[in-house]
Simulated assay, not measured.
Amino acid sequence: MKKIIVFASGSGTNAENIIKYFAKGKTARVVSVFTNNASAKVIERAKNHQISTEIFSKNELLERNVLQKIQEIDPDLIVLAGFLLKFPENIIEKYPNQIINIHPALLPNYGGKGMYGMHIHRAVVENKEKETGITIHFVNENYDEGAIIFQKSTALTNEDTPETVAEKIHDLEQKYFPEIISRLLEE
């Protein structure tokens, strides 16, 4: 059975979706959820599925503490699902091409520090984009610059608001993120 660790900072809807997807008799499963936010809803979601959680500070992430916990688990894949901190190079070096992230835009557009969630959706609407989408990519030492694994776009209209864009993106994330994770684990 292949092991997945999920890192999340917020509500955890993508994390929970991944947990549920792999609970259905797949050849992999989420074994732990790591978060830097002690009040994140993802903690409750993980506990509801009997998934262990690790809560850590930014300093613990940058020091060896988090890396040591990851090494104890020995995951096949590390998945960033709404994780807002920059991932440390010591973990990236230890797990090359084993850490992926989902970004709520079509990279390289709307990527980089500070570009997440509603910040992106507002910018997309303000710039009157005709489409947006999701990007699943490997994590490297720079925000949103790792090799792209998968992209899926969705059309936008002049009536779209940041909130409707967020809904469209969430639907894409829920459908495609678990499928791409599964495909990566099969390769």
Results as ranks from 00 to 15, higher is better:
residue 102 I to V: 15
residue 155 A to H: 12
residue 32 S to L: 11
residue 56 F to M: 08
residue 132 T to K: 01
residue 6 V to F: 07
residue 29 R to E: 14
residue 13 T to R: 02
residue 42 V to R: 01
residue 173 E to P: 07
residue 100 I to Y: 09
residue 117 G to T: 01
residue 161 T to M: 08
residue 27 T to H: 13
residue 174 Q to W: 03
residue 52 S to A: 13
residue 183 R to N: 14
residue 81 A to M: 00
residue 186 E to C: 09
residue 180 I to F: 09
residue 96 P to D: 10
residue 64 R to K: 12
residue 41 K to S: 05
residue 50 Q to F: 13
residue 181 I to Q: 08
residue 130 K to A: 12
residue 28 A to L: 14
residue 81 A to K: 00
residue 9 S to G: 05
residue 179 E to K: 15
residue 4 I to Q: 10
residue 115 M to Y: 11
residue 36 N to K: 10
residue 5 I to L: 15
residue 24 K to S: 15
residue 16 E to H: 09
residue 88 P to L: 06
residue 71 Q to G: 00
residue 139 V to Q: 11
residue 106 L to A: 02
residue 16 E to R: 09
residue 15 A to L: 03
residue 90 N to R: 11
residue 68 Q to P: 00
residue 44 E to N: 10
residue 122 R to V: 06
residue 41 K to F: 11
residue 83 F to P: 01
residue 166 A to P: 03
residue 66 V to R: 02
residue 73 I to S: 02
residue 52 S to H: 02
residue 44 E to R: 12
residue 23 A to S: 15
residue 168 K to E: 06
residue 140 N to M: 12
residue 148 I to R: 02
residue 7 F to T: 12
residue 53 T to V: 15
residue 69 K to R: 13
residue 12 G to Q: 04
residue 110 Y to F: 13
residue 157 T to R: 07
residue 29 R to N: 14
residue 174 Q to T: 13
residue 96 P to H: 09
residue 116 Y to W: 08
residue 61 L to M: 15
residue 182 S to G: 14
residue 73 I to K: 10
residue 109 N to G: 02
residue 46 A to K: 06
residue 87 F to W: 11
residue 106 L to N: 01
residue 72 E to I: 10
residue 95 Y to K: 04
residue 109 N to T: 01
residue 98 Q to W: 03
residue 25 G to S: 07
residue 148 I to M: 08
residue 41 K to L: 08
residue 33 V to P: 04
residue 51 I to M: 03
residue 115 M to W: 05
residue 16 E to F: 08
residue 76 D to H: 11
residue 99 I to Q: 07
residue 28 A to E: 11
residue 53 T to P: 01
residue 121 H to P: 02
residue 7 F to P: 07
residue 94 K to P: 00
residue 66 V to D: 03
residue 96 P to F: 10
residue 34 F to D: 05
residue 140 N to Q: 12
residue 129 E to F: 02
residue 149 I to N: 05
residue 108 P to N: 02
residue 41 K to W: 01
residue 77 L to H: 09
residue 3 K to M: 11
residue 179 E to Q: 15
residue 87 F to I: 11
residue 46 A to P: 06
residue 158 N to R: 13
residue 11 S to F: 04
residue 128 K to E: 09
residue 144 D to M: 09
residue 84 L to F: 04
residue 90 N to K: 14
residue 170 H to D: 03
residue 152 K to T: 06
residue 180 I to P: 04
residue 83 F to D: 00
residue 48 N to M: 13
residue 184 L to H: 06
residue 25 G to N: 14
residue 179 E to Y: 07
residue 130 K to T: 14
residue 34 F to K: 06
residue 117 G to N: 01
residue 149 I to L: 13
residue 92 I to R: 07
residue 9 S to N: 08
residue 187 E to I: 09
residue 120 I to R: 00
